[in-house]
Nucleic acid binder design. Structure first.
Lengths: 197, 197
DNA sequence: GGGGCAATGTCGCCACTGGTAACTCCCTCA
DNA sequence: TGAGGGAGTTACCAGTGGCGACATTGCCCC
């Protein structure tokens, strides 16, 4: 009897399938539900097959995290408008992403599993998001909407505030229902300190 | 043969011993090194004994996290000086704690293991830290060093900025060597927005 | 006093996880 | 055509969290 092709992932798409399956697991069962074995099973493959494409489970997790940052980057990139509006849009998109994908966001910033010093992928993807903020800040300074503080410092402040807010929201310290509201409030306070006057 | 007393933890101090052992494991082997079995072994007890004092491994972790917040609270409480100085002192103590106890801090804010909605302990301990900030903010507003924004909003901003900064520091996105410097920079920017003028 | 009794621990066991080693299959290419 | 290697598989291992049945101990109360 002619068996179906035994190697459906022959052309290297198993890697992508595993990342997709792992991401789905995170969404469905929260971060602790992510297991190399479950991801492999979901991809229709024995768990050892994953080791052909990832050194560790940690490497698989790192790939999921990197993909998460790519998604966050895409969401933030969609912000438009004048320089300061764009900066605010990025901030809102950031918080919206976190609220919409809490388990994924937690995985991305959990920090324990994917050590930034071991896996370069996620760190690079995160840097791209920060780059987006920097460019908006530069523009806002050029247009005179923000004072000329050191761009790196302001970017750090922005990243700190946004991540800190998301962290408090996702841990339940702040009500998720107020996320948009809180994002605006916090950014307004930051603006007050950065505004050109 | 006379066996040594089989129940060295009779008066309920096993719980405390387990938390201490677990905390030590986190410090020694980072968050992923914390295991219920290892903690029990370190306390000189079989691993199932731990279940007499904690429902889950998660409950043990939650206890470690709560204790971490207590330590953070104690460190922050030591800040003194005028209202605004005290607020800055709290901020510096916060960052110093994170840098000095990176693995513990990661566990405290990792978020995956100890869900705030399940374990009340850690959330309450965290709230106490925020309470410290609030009181300093209230004082600074009363003394006229800060403008009279909504205290809750300002507290959120403060907590966001501090946690965000620590998060970036511990993940390697910002150099730990500059932690004190960055803390001051970031807080100065925040102050600029909050200052009474 | 002595007898229950609950608290505290131990042992044995289970399912599951990450990881390794040895093997099979099948495609490619000299 | 046949050697080689990439991609998966099976079998296995140690370690982990968790459960249930049992032992021991000290305390409380008749």
């Amino acid at each position: 009897m002619a068996t179906l092709p035994r190697r459906p992932h022959d052309r290297g798409d198993l890697r992508a399938s595993l990342v997709t399956a792992a991401r789905a697991l995170v969404v469905a069962e929260d971060t602790e539900g992510l297991t190399l074995r479950k991801a492999a099973a979901a991809a229709g493959v024995s768990h050892t097959a994953a080791y052909r494409h990832f050194a560790d489970e940690a490497a698989l997790v790192a790939a999921v995290v990197a993909r998460g940052f790519d998604e966050l980057h895409a969401a933030a990139e969609a912000a438009s408008g004048g320089p300061l509006d764009r900066l605010h849009g990025i901030g809102r998109a950031y918080v919206e992403f976190a609220v919409a994908n809490p388990s994924l966001y937690r995985l991305m910033f959990g920090g324990e599993v994917p050590r930034r010093d071991v896996h370069a992928e996620p760190a690079a993807a995160e840097q791209r998001v920060h780059g987006l903020m920097s460019s908006a800040i530069v523009d806002a300074q050029a247009s005179g909407e923000l004072a000329g503080h050191d761009v790196a410092d302001v970017t750090v402040l922005m990243a700190c505030v946004l991540h800190g807010l998301c962290s408090l929201l996702l841990s339940g310290q702040l009500p998720v229902a107020r996320s948009a509201d809180l994002a605006d409030t916090v950014m307004a306070l930051v603006d007050a300190g950065l505004a050109a006057r």
